[in-house]
């Protein structure tokens, strides 16, 4: 059973739609026990970092996420919140990845909206069988810089982390649930290989 963390941060429907298509059992929950007991956890997220962190705090989920031992998949904002800190409203985040989230340069159109390439710099079960330089769908104004946990990177003015992995924590900056067949493969990898 996969627990999808419900913390009032955006469009969960698109994630559940993919899981339905893949015939995978899931629950949407903000109950700490249900999350602790899950086989796997999905941590989606659209919106701003600060209200999202406040919501996690209100639901007593910060420690639950930090202490998760099962395979964990962060998506979009769900990747950024894994960092120590986000420039967005100067928000203290979960501190799982020792990195600070930055805003794209004003020289670029922000948000980045659309399909961009991911090139893989390390192997990970999450990206198993996905060819280099495939396109995925991104919508983001902030990014995680390249660091030792970067698995895939993408260029938007600067190269940034588009896929990361630290132990059981996996995350993508793009929306696999909106990235066509290749995106579904990422979710399937998470279900089957992580």
């Amino acid at each position: 059973m996969i627990s999808i963390i419900d913390y009032n941060a955006g469009n969960i429907a698109s994630v559940t739609n993919v899981l339905k298509r893949l015939a995978c059992d899931y629950i949407i929950t903000s109950n700490p026990d249900e999350i602790r007991k899950a086989d796997k956890i999905i941590f989606p997220g659209v919106g701003r970092a600060k209200p999202a962190m406040e919501e996690l705090k209100k639901r007593s989920l910060i420690k639950v996420v930090q202490n998760a031992k099962q395979p964990f998949l962060g998506i979009c904002l769900g990747l950024q919140l894994l960092a120590d800190f986000s420039e967005e409203d100067s928000t203290k985040c979960l501190g799982i990845i020792p990195e600070a989230i930055k805003r794209f340069s004003n020289n670029l159109k922000v948000p980045q909206i659309g399909w961009n390439k991911v090139s893989f710099t390390k192997s990970s079960p999450l990206t198993d069988g996905i060819p280099d330089n495939e396109y995925f769908y991104f919508v983001n104004s902030y990014y995680m810089p390249i660091n030792e946990f970067t698995v895939g990177e993408t260029k938007y003015g600067i190269s940034f982390s588009s896929v990361i992995q630290k132990d059981n924590f996996y995350a993508t900056q793009f929306h696999p649930e909106k990235s066509g067949k290749i995106g579904e493969k990422i979710i399937r990898n998470f279900i089957e290989k992580c």
């Binding site: 020289n107 670029l108 980045q112 659309g114 399909w115 961009n116 390439k117 396109y135 991104f138 993408t154 260029k155 938007y156 003015g157």
Partner: peptide
Amino acid sequence: FASSGNPSTLTKR
């Protein structure tokens, strides 16, 4: 001058 050399791989839609 600085617009077209922008190192980005974001596609047009």
